[in-house]
């Protein structure tokens, strides 16, 4: 970590004060909406439809009870969990194989593969939304496999959203694992898969965890495809949360309570593991 010359004491006071003021302002920018979410979720509906007040006059936990009845939130929760968990598991598994190939093998078309995969991340979602919608509908018509409106369709769509970043980051991470380790395993009679599962994967756990968190967040937060590709049965939180606003009324306190509840899993996971993300990004950037 930083040596003495970079310690705060070596900085002139003007810099220290600039830092305090600027970071405080940035902290407020980040924190105020979060505070509004928490405080509003604890207000009775009447206090929310009135003028905004910084401090709740009356506190209530009622919204946290009501959110489960106003819309079938538990049902959406289950859908989002199934879809996100399945997409994450598959995405991580596929990414591990691909990253292993990219980091350990020289093969024809490797450059084209990495560039193509990375560039798909940059395509506008709207570009393949319409064709994918049509393809899913027509696959359903021809084969009877219902991808449109099903969780399966959403799962395979979401897993590709996190795949490019996951491959890129895991390949960077695996580069940092000495090749001597898996070569030794192969000398001991492991095939390439044996070396991957017995040596490389255990050594890459932090990177894999970071990638899994990213994949889960991506799937949990997606709105565009969820609005088109789901129906009443398979609806996820991304679409379901709109249910708190009817044509005449918006239950803002319940909206905020529900937002808080659906955010806790991903925010907690992200904040716990952001250190790994920085490490992974650094490893990837060095290449």
């Amino acid at each position: 970590m930083p040596s003495a010359y970079r310690s705060p004491t070596a900085r002139p006071m003007s810099f220290v004060w600039t830092r305090r003021i600027v970071l405080t302002l940035m902290g407020l920018f980040a924190a105020v909406p979060v505070y509004v979410m928490i405080s509003t979720s604890l207000k009775p509906l009447q206090d929310v439809t009135d003028k905004f007040r910084w401090f709740p006059g009356r506190l209530t936990l009622r919204p946290y009870v009501d959110i489960w009845h106003t819309v079938p939130l538990a049902h959406y929760f289950v859908n989002s969990t199934i879809v996100s968990a399945a997409a994450t598991g598959l995405s991580v598994l596929i990414a591990i194989f691909a990253a292993y190939a990219v980091s350990r093998y020289r093969f024809k078309g490797k450059r084209i593969f990495t560039i193509t995969v990375l560039s798909t991340q940059m395509f506008p979602g709207i570009l393949f939304l319409l064709p994918l919608f049509l393809i899913f509908v027509n696959i359903g018509n021809v084969t009877g496999i219902a991808l449109y409106g099903s969780r399966g369709g959403l799962i395979i769509t979401y897993l590709t959203f996190s795949l490019p970043f996951s491959i890129w980051m895991l390949a960077g991470y695996m580069e940092s694992i000495p090749r001597g380790l898996d070569e030794a395993a192969m000398v001991d009679g492991c095939g390439p898969l044996g070396a991957l599962f017995r040596v490389v994967i255990p050594a890459a756990v932090p990177g894999i965890v970071a990638v899994a968190v990213y994949a889960f967040m991506t799937a949990w937060s997606e709105v565009l495809f969820a609005s088109v590709m789901t129906n009443d049965v398979t609806r996820t939180l991304a679409v379901g949360l709109r249910g708190y606003s009817t044509q005449y009324d918006v239950y803002w306190n319940q909206v905020m309570a529900a937002s808080l509840v659906v955010s806790v899993p991903v925010v907690a996971g992200f904040l716990l593991l952001q250190r790994y993300l920085v490490t992974g990004l650094t490893a990837g950037a060095v290449k």
């Binding site: 980040a30 979410m37 967040m217 949990w220 709105v223 808080l260 955010s263 992200f270 904040l271 952001q274």
Partner: peptide, 18 residues
Amino acid sequence: RALFMTPYALPVYASVII
């Protein structure tokens, strides 16, 4: 650092609704 990261970690449909 954790505070600054929070807006990015929040699901977009929850944070933008705030």
